[in-house]
């Protein structure tokens, strides 16, 4: 179901199309001998993506997210260009839970917008948001984050999720994220989400009472990175320093990087204790003094990262504090 409406899109028309969609899905489900369809919705998810993206891959990610975070998804394809174009289509994403006769369906609205039409986008999206449920914006376009129209879209959202590792200039990416946070936007950054398992493994090291007892011996924290992991490196360094400071331990941080390769390594050193975490392929190697262990840690997909972020539709105090500290450490003269 869908219609290209040239340069305008009427939210009322889209809502009518959605209502018709449910009627036809219900009839179709019953005609096929099933027990109709069940509508599931726990939020409005606005996904902003460049038209050059792989939309079939993105579609698979959305489909995987829906069973756990059913949403009215508003997928906005950013076409670029100065000619004002805006069009839409409405469809559903359904799945049949194993062993059941009834499909569960979520609504999807796809809107294509040129840059010239971006200013109208917020006025189209706002009436389409499901009442009483949170609006989450997932901005996959690094370009859009810097455009003034983005702020109107971000203002509608309970939370904005982005990926600073995809921003073209790694060194300034952290500043742009910190600026958004300063404007009061509740943020999720995939660069931070990618660190969850790392942080968890590091925390696990200090669940051991022997290691915890040596925590105040730590005097140096060294983080090294390659390629697009600069923001991750600053986040990791800032988070470790903050945690140590909370325990009354003041250590020196160094963050060093190279332009090539994608790697991340963190070392905590002090008298009697040396902890090192480093990734190699799909494994995370953890070394604590002379004991080492390897654990399974595949590269998280966009699905896994978004799934974690959608699970936290509230303030994340650890991230907020880390982001502020990381920006201070990375840009001491700002």
């Amino acid at each position: 179901m869908g219609a290209a409406i040239g340069a305008t899109v009427a939210p009322d028309h889209i809502l009518k199309e959605l209502a018709d969609l449910w009627v036809s899905l219900g009839k179709q489900g019953e005609a096929e001998g099933g027990a109709g369809v069940l509508r599931a919705c726990s939020m409005t998810l606005v996904v902003l993506a460049e038209e050059s993206e792989d939309f079939s891959g993105l579609g698979e990610t959305m489909a995987a997210l829906m069973p756990e975070h059913p949403a009215r998804t508003i997928l906005i394809r950013l076409r670029g260009g100065e000619e004002r174009t805006l069009s839409e289509r409405v469809y559903s994403q359904c799945w049949m839970p194993f062993g059941q006769r009834r499909q569960i369906c979520c609504e999807q609205i796809e809107i294509t917008a040129s840059d010239a039409a971006l200013a109208d986008l917020a006025s189209v999206v706002l009436p389409l948001a499901v009442p009483d449920l949170p609006v989450i914006v997932w901005c996959r376009s690094a370009r859009l984050v810097d455009m003034p129209e983005f702020h109107a879209i971000a203002a509608m959202a309970r939370k904005v999720v982005l990926d600073s590792a995809q921003m073209p200039d790694g060194h300034s990416a952290l500043r742009r994220v910190a600026d958004l946070a300063r404007r009061g936007v509740l943020l999720g950054d995939f660069s931070w989400t990618r660190l969850t398992r790392w942080r968890e493994m590091l925390a696990q090291v200090f669940e051991n009472r022997r290691n915890l007892a040596l925590l105040d011996h730590i005097s140096k924290v060294r983080v090294s990175f390659g390629g697009a992991y600069e923001v991750l490196a600053w986040y990791l360094g800032a988070w470790v320093l903050n945690a140590l400071a909370d325990a009354g331990v003041h250590a020196e941080l160094s963050v060093t990087g190279t332009t090539g390769g994608r790697y991340l390594r963190v070392k905590l050193e002090g008298e009697g204790l040396k902890v090192e975490l480093a990734r190699s392929d799909d494994r995370l190697a953890i070394a604590v003094n002379d004991l080492s262990n390897v654990t399974n840690l595949p590269q998280p997909t966009d699905y896994l990262l978004m799934r974690e972020e959608l699970g936290i539709v509230r303030n994340d105090p650890v991230f907020d504090r880390t982001l502020a500290s990381a920006a201070r450490l990375a840009y001491p003269t700002d």
Binding site: R199, A203, F206, A243, L244, I312, V318
Partner: peptide
């Protein structure tokens, strides 16, 4: 000497499991 693990993040981490 610290008695609490300062690296814990209950919002994102699974429950703490002792050795």
């Amino acid at each position: 000497m610290p008695t609490e693990n300062p690296f814990q993040d209950p919002l994102r981490f699974e429950r703490r499991v002792p050795e």
